[in-house]
Structures are given as C-alpha cells and as structure tokens.
C-alpha cells in the first residue's frame, strides 16, 4: 500500500514500541531485490526494488556521441539520464527534466566515473538510462546502486562495484536508510556512496543538522549497511549465470 502524503507529517516518527513507522529497527535497511538482464535491447540492464522504490537501469555503449560536440578526443564520456515517471510520486510529476533530475544525473555521473576506464574509449560515450517507476525516498542512492549493476552486466571493464545508502537522523536518533516520510519530516539526511576498490566515498551530500560525533557514527552505520547491499549486488550479478549452471548440474545427476 502506498503512503498517501498530504504535506502533513506525523509528529512522532517512532511508534510506541520504539520501532520506526514501517516497523524497522534503527539500523535496518528496507528489503532489497535486484535482477540483471531485464531489458533485452540494451547492452546491460538491471532492475531494483528497494522498499517501495522500483527502478530500471539500462546501459548502452561504447557508442558514438550525439550531439557530436560533447565527444572528447582523449577519453570517453559517461552520460547518465535519471528520470522519474509521471506516476512515480503522489502528485503527477511533470515529465520534463527539471533541476532535481539534472542534479541527480550529474552526481551519479561523478560517482560512477572513478570506477570506469574511460581513457580506453576516446570519442565515445557510455550512456546509462535510469527510470524511476515508483519513488519512496532514497532514489538517488538506489539509482547509483542499480546503475553500477547495469554497467557490470554490460561487460564494461570496472575497477569495482559502487553501492550507496542514505543515513540520517529523526527525532534525535540516528537511523539507516530513510524512507520517503522520514526524509521529509526528519532532522538530517546524508546520502553516501562508496567505490569498493579503494573504499573511498564517491558521493556525500548533507541536508539538515547534526554534530560531528553524530556524523562519524552515521558514516560507521552506513559502512555496515553498504556491506550488506554489496552482498546483494554480487548475488544478483552472479545469479544470472549460476542458475543456468545449477539447472545443468541438476539435470545431469
């Protein structure tokens, strides 16, 4: 059941039994389901369900750049197109890309660029199309996660995968993986992404107020959550091939 939000937020973001509104513990992430190879026309694709978020990503490339003036003679470029469907939010979203879409496309590009070997493909572009079908908080993190998965599925050489999660603070308590309502009514929101080859932060945005100790603790919470997400990503990538292997072995024995 989707939540109907009429700009009136509940006063307390915790239930009486101490759990969050959707029944999670403070450091519990929402249930995540991932699948690769869902779009047959794309070179690589992935689908993600993260709580109520439903996101598709498709990768094409390396291919010619249009418009041509964007091409760089010494290296390839990565272009990310983050779009939200008109029906993905409670009030109809205008289909034209606005400020928010352009910003998120840009931060995902910057986040994914360090893991690719763009200098090997001069004059070309890798294009990642992200389509948000259903949005409920944390779509920029979910989009980054699913874009990395689609790139890996396309066979693009990568240094490592990228995972992202949002941490934050509601009603004075630090929590992991904010849902839509916690994002809007909470005190602080801190989306972060990690590139696993050097374990460095590739995306860090901040909104709200929080002191330094809380920030450090939040980042530590994020690390454990990111590890969990990485395991789901690895499993999703491998399952495309291991299911065929298991079928074969099952048939033979």
């Amino acid at each position: 059941m989707p939540l109907i939000i009429n700009d009136v937020y509940p006063k307390k973001l915790f239930r009486e039994d101490g759990k969050r509104l959707d029944g999670r513990e403070n450091n519990e992430i929402r249930p995540i389901k991932m699948k690769v190879g869902v779009i047959s026309n794309a070179d690589g694709s992935a689908y993600l369900e993260w709580g109520n978020n439903k996101i598709y990503a498709a990768v094409y490339g390396p291919r010619e750049v249009h418009p041509h003036h964007l091409a760089k003679p010494d290296k390839g470029i990565l272009r990310v197109f983050y779009r939200m469907a008109t029906f993905s939010v409670f009030e109809r979203k205008r289909p034209a890309p606005g400020r928010r879409e352009k910003e998120i496309s840009m931060i995902i590009t910057d986040c994914l660029e360090p893991v690719l070997f763009l200098e090997l493909y001069p004059g070309t572009a890798f294009e990642v199309f992200i389509e948000v079908m259903d949005a409920d908080g944390g779509t920029r993190c979910a989009s980054t996660t699913v874009a990395a998965l689609a790139l890996a599925d396309a066979g693009v050489p990568m240094r490592s995968l990228v995972s992202a999660v949002a941490v934050g603070k509601i009603d004075g308590q630090l929590i992991t993986d904010l849902s839509g309502i916690e994002d809007k009514a909470g005190e602080a929101d801190l989306p972060c992404a990690i590139t696993w080859f050097n374990e460095e932060l590739s995306l860090l945005q901040f909104d709200g107020d929080m002191d330094l100790d809380e920030l450090n603790e939040s980042l530590a919470n994020a690390k454990t959550a990111l590890n969990e997400i990485l395991q789901i990503q690895l499993k999703a990538l491998k399952s495309k091939y291991t299911t065929i292997l298991e079928e074969q072995e099952g048939g033979e024995s």
């Binding site: 893991v115 490592s160 995968l161 491998k238």
Partner: peptide, 9 residues
C-alpha cells in the same frame, strides 16, 4: 575452474 567473478572481486 568455472568460478564466476564480478568486477572488483
């Protein structure tokens, strides 16, 4: 050995 590996592994 038919071990499937993924980027970064």
């Amino acid at each position: 050995d038919r071990e499937i590996v993924v980027p970064g592994e």
